[in-house]
């Protein structure tokens, strides 16, 4: 969705992984090791005539997100479970995953509710419709609300990341608290507080699960 939310890339990626190993990813060799032309030619991978052919490298196929415009995020601590190119990816993946989760949970709840509410000795079509009605009542309701919450959470989270320049658990918890408060903001202070605490707890739990999955 980068065409929708076109974002400016900041040029802050001086410390990417390739630099630490000393090999420039564009050149294929370490420039500090070179003193003469013959060394460049004899360096392994330096000048390979097969790589100069116009059709070289086609067997590798299109590599996943290897274009310069589509670099992955370099923000400290922002590396998640799936590669992310910035806040639009976080927003889309986070919202989509939570929406589908809510839809699935609500739908399965509605499925069992519908099975229980089937009228006695009804024909098959009526049984099917009862179950489907319950699924479509519960699933989208839970999914929509969870999706809106996740959308707000991700917007706050990315805004805080951009503001602080790094991502950590405090960002997530504060973003969760703000999203919960905004979600219930028209109901009064007490529901706002409850929703805020619940969402902050959910954000903290998610950060913990993500840390375990990433092996940190």
């Amino acid at each position: 969705m980068s065409w929708l939310f076109g974002s400016k890339k900041e040029e802050t990626h001086t410390e990417s992984g390739a630099v630490s190993s000393g090999i420039d990813p564009k050149l294929g060799f370490d420039p500090s090791q070179i003193s003469s032309v013959s060394q460049i030619i004899s360096a392994p991978g330096g000048l390979d005539t097969s790589r100069l052919h116009p059709l070289a490298g086609l067997e590798k196929g299109v590599e996943f997100m290897d274009l310069e415009d589509e670099e992955l995020t370099h923000m400290e601590g922002a590396q998640g479970l799936i590669p992310s190119r910035g806040w639009t990816d976080d927003l889309c993946y986070g919202t989509g995953a939570v929406y589908l989760l809510g839809l699935g949970l609500g739908g399965s709840y509605g499925f069992f509710e519908g099975l229980q509410n089937i009228p006695a000795n009804a024909p098959g079509r009526l049984r099917l419709n009862t179950v489907l009605n319950h699924i479509t009542k519960r699933g989208p309701f839970l999914g929509n609300n969870a999706g809106v919450l996740a959308l707000t959470y991700n917007l706050f989270d990315s805004a805080l990341d951009a503001f602080r320049g790094k991502h950590d658990i405090y960002n997530s918890v504060v973003a969760g608290a703000l999203a919960g408060a905004l979600f219930k903001s028209s109901r009064g202070l007490k529901p706002m507080g409850y929703a805020s605490v619940l969402m902050a707890g959910a954000a903290a739990a998610w950060t913990g699960v993500k840390g375990v999955l990433l092996g940190q």
């Binding site: 889309c92 993946y93 986070g94 919202t95 989509g96 995953a97």
Partner: peptide, 14 residues
């Protein structure tokens, strides 16, 4: 990409 499109379309709709 299905997940991405779900989220993107949802965000657009919201």
């Amino acid at each position: 990409v299905i997940l991405n499109d779900f989220g993107g379309a949802f965000a657009m709709g919201v």
